[in-house]
Design a binder for these strands. Sequence first.
DNA 1: GGTGAGTATATTGCATTCAATGTTCAATGT
DNA 2: ACATTGAACATTGAATGCAATATACTCACC
Lengths: 223, 223
Amino acid sequence: MQHEWAVLEPTTLTERVYDVLRARIIEGDWGSGNFLREKEISGKLGVSRTPVREALARLAADGFLERIPHRGFKIPHNSANDLLDLYPILAALEVLAAAEGFKEMGKERLDALRSINESYRAAYALQDPKEGVRLNNQFHNLLTVDCTNPKLSQMILSLQAEVFRLECWALVNIHCWDVSIREHEELLNAIESSDYNEALKILEKNRSMTVHDFSNFTEKETD
Amino acid sequence: MQHEWAVLEPTTLTERVYDVLRARIIEGDWGSGNFLREKEISGKLGVSRTPVREALARLAADGFLERIPHRGFKIPHNSANDLLDLYPILAALEVLAAAEGFKEMGKERLDALRSINESYRAAYALQDPKEGVRLNNQFHNLLTVDCTNPKLSQMILSLQAEVFRLECWALVNIHCWDVSIREHEELLNAIESSDYNEALKILEKNRSMTVHDFSNFTEKETD
DNA sequence: GGTGAGTATATTGCATTCAATGTTCAATGT
DNA sequence: ACATTGAACATTGAATGCAATATACTCACC
């Protein structure tokens, strides 16, 4: 048999700028409220303003930036409310995506999920909030990755990234990890014993769990 | 009390081009698979390629166009599958949005919804498929318009527009209108008698109803 | 001292130009 | 006749320059 030939996807500068900026925004490299200046970014990346503008526009369309006409693109003001808005949406969509996937989940996937959850537990023991947020995100990501509905899959990925960014920012407020970790276990056990309705119920509960005790949290402005 | 002063939103050419193109795409002015040429559009609108490019990029991000690097933007291939993918998502999100709204729905809104549904029935009697699609969309739109979750609201609006475009295209295949109309009535009655759980169940069923009998439907290519 | 007009500066929006890529089609060789 | 090559063309991608808009600042005026 011949070698498998990987197809060379045609790419553009805009695409690469988008990837770079998206990663940095999610990592929280800019404080909320800060404007991303086209000239500064294009200078640092060594490209013209055009691909930067296009990348910023895409990021705004994806919800990672807020666009203000004639003023620019800025990191949206982080707020607990945004998380409260996102959780129920993500819960509904993840349940929808997982509904089919659960039935065909093999042992290797269950093991991978258990492994992630164990790392999650370790991060909890070490009080490493950023790592915990990352692992929780990874867990949910792997749970819904084989969704056969492409539109749904794409929406979930985008929302998970947005939630990830906000949770990275709100680190200290993500508590109750022990509950979250226990729920993940129960979820996997339910899947393993083919109790899919129970699994879906747990998943929905798990996604909205962190909602509590956000109420008295207000943002520290940076602009 | 002073007059209400509508804030003058600063606008851009890109924005206006976006609105124009979006409306035309939804109306089905281009056949599926056709490329939208930047030069042609900018010429007809009397602007340069730049705002057209930005508008097209936004439309692609919103799912109204498919972007192929170095080739251009084209109308996505319509397919029944896309509708099948969208319906369950929209069902889940509309249920989520409506869950709160139902409880505070006043009489004037119920009347408005009934009125739309009557027009829907009239369109059915006249066998006017496009008008029916439009009214069904309007019904669902008004049902979820007061959603207090801005992110959810925005997602629903975008999905409703995409479904609208596809349903306009698939006109002949939207049948079972009588069932849809009856369900709308039952939905409104359930809301009126404060039976919200029942209302939500009907809404979800209604959104996935048109799914049947699409299976043997294949697209006529145009490129 | 505070307020407001007017100017200067910074930044985005748009147009234009050039470069890179993809496509078409005729010429060439087998 | 068919496949392949390469050149002409069309189209998008990116860079540059200019115009429009927003903000910051200065200075006169109350």
